[in-house]
Amino acid sequence: MKIAIASGKGGTGKTTLSVNLSAYLAEDEEIVLSDLDVEEPNSGLFINARMVHEEEKYKMVPEWKEDQCTLCGICQEVCNFHAVIQLGEMIMVFPELCHGCYACSELCPTDALPMIPKKMGMLKHLQNDKLSFIESRLDVGEEQAVPLIKQSQDYIDEHFTDDILRIYDSPPGTSCPVIEATKDADFVILVTEPTPFGLHDLKIAVETMKELKKPFGVVVNRHGIGNDGVLRYCEDKDIPVLAKIPNDRKIAELYSEGKLIYNEVPEVKQELDKIIAYLRTLKQGGVQ
């Protein structure tokens, strides 16, 4: 089963929930935790584990071979992303704009734009007893997160069997990186905070999950601040609220130090138990 932990708004507690839930579950069973927030991966700051494997990740981009080029201009014409531009007698390639569609390369009549690998980030595979942790990290200056997110999921598919529970710490927002991180999930947990910002962005995240036809539930973090807007919304829309993690300065302090909280704050463990119970019911009932 694949569980994606997502949110519309950033900073609501996706990483806190991902690392604590994974570590707690890994006390009894094998778990794969993957940080798919490749722009700003933070889960690794909370996980003590030894490195199993590390690899560079590449995307394919065209490279101009001047001596083979007839300057026919087809490459520029077929690139929808303005990543290949003809300037006088030169073809300029902008790798950061390239989506790797191969159109310029394969439609070039003289093979003057072969595709070559360009490094976009790093993948690390770490292990601590039953917890496997996969982190992907986009190089600063690379603009597109989606290809790296996709390759991270491919790595997990190749290295772990389907019966192991996978937890995906997803990027914030509702656009392409989130879609890529959640589209293969069997269930999505949307983490929010009970404030007007939290509610507004939760609504967008809910619409996104409906569009993707994903089953989902909500975890309210920092329960006790703000107002009851989020809870009323979930009740109105029949959205299951899986847990309410209390607003507690101690949690913020532990988090700030890079520590896990479920062993320090009993209420957090209780709330995690509720989430786990819900996930077990889902699994037994077959994933909808």
Binding site: E40, L138, V140, Q144
Partner: peptide, 8 residues
Amino acid sequence: GSPGIGCP
């Protein structure tokens, strides 16, 4: 601005 380091 938005969070992250990507296109937006």
